[in-house]
């Protein structure tokens, strides 16, 4: 059950998007997210949709795979949308139990839902096409200027990449411990909130113990392989901008301009 969470996990294939410099993808994702919140007219949203569709096509990641594991997110999305429906003032459409759904509310809810869907799919395209290592390399490079004010950029990005590497392993482990406790009669599903939380103890304690053991092992393995922080390290895959990266920046600029133009003058 738990191994079905594939949302945002790197999908290995070869595509133009996979080969792109991670910095371009990070900047691109940021631009895309910003573009979603700039306007609330239909036209720029249509452009955002076209752009997203093109990106998905380019990524060679099956759409089915991409939206799998989105269930939890959809619940969150519905809650947000419903709140918007009720809490926005304006022309009343329906009224019941002292609650009013307004026309503006429905519009706002639709936009919020669209924004969130675009945002989530848009950013998952990035994580699907970029290995965590590239991602952290990209972040390290982008945040490089912060080193001047003594922010431990290398360490932060190393931590992120290790965390990402261990997520699938820990998920599998969670599944295993859960089943082992169920074999001893544990019940994780029924009962009230307090009972449910109490039922988690036999799952969480072993999970923490195991995570610490793994962290300890890993620290030792890294030391044994001469890791001593970012100082004096070279890169196997140094980030260099290529032709396609420049092209991608141009496309992004055109897209952003397009959204602004559509939003302002149409």
């Amino acid at each position: 059950m738990i191994r079905e969470i594939t949302f945002g996990q790197y999908y290995q294939t070869d595509s133009a998007l996979h080969r792109l410099n991670p910095r371009v993808k990070l900047v691109g994702t940021m631009i895309y997210i910003i573009s979603l919140f700039l306007f609330k007219e239909a036209a720029p949203f249509a452009l955002a949709l076209v752009f997203l569709a093109a990106i998905i096509k380019l990524s060679h990641v099956p759409f089915k795979y991409m939206i799998r594991g989105l269930k939890a997110v959809i619940v969150l999305l519905l809650i947000t949308a419903v709140f918007n429906m009720f809490l926005t003032r304006g022309e009343a459409l329906v009224s019941f139990w002292g609650l009013t759904i307004t026309k503006e509310g429905v519009i706002a809810a639709v936009f919020i839902a669209l924004r969130l869907i675009f945002l989530i799919i848009g950013s998952s395209v990035m994580t699907l096409t970029t290995t965590p290592n590239q991602l952290t390399d990209g972040l390290e490079k982008l945040m490089g200027p912060l080193k001047v004010i003594k922010v431990p950029i290398h360490e932060i990005s190393m931590m992120m990449s290790i965390a990402l590497r261990f997520i699938p392993i820990l998920l599998e482990e969670t599944d295993k411990i859960m089943k082992a406790q169920m074999a001893r009669g544990a019940d994780f599903d029924s009962g009230n909130m307090i009972k449910k939380i109490k039922a988690m103890v036999p799952l969480l304690v072993p999970l923490f113990v195991s995570a610490f053991r793994r962290a300890n092992d890993l620290a030792m393995a890294m030391e044994a392989r001469c890791y001593q922080g970012g100082e004096g390290r070279t890169k196997m895959k140094p980030l260099k901008y290529g032709k396609s990266d420049v092209l991608a920046y141009v496309v992004l600029a055109v897209y952003l301009a397009g959204v602004i133009v559509l939003g302002k003058w149409l």
Partner: peptide, 20 residues
Amino acid sequence: LKKLRSKVGLVFQYPEHQLF
């Protein structure tokens, strides 16, 4: 099913990892 699990006991691999 809970009763079944008490009748058919399953010891997983590395079962010491479930001690808590």
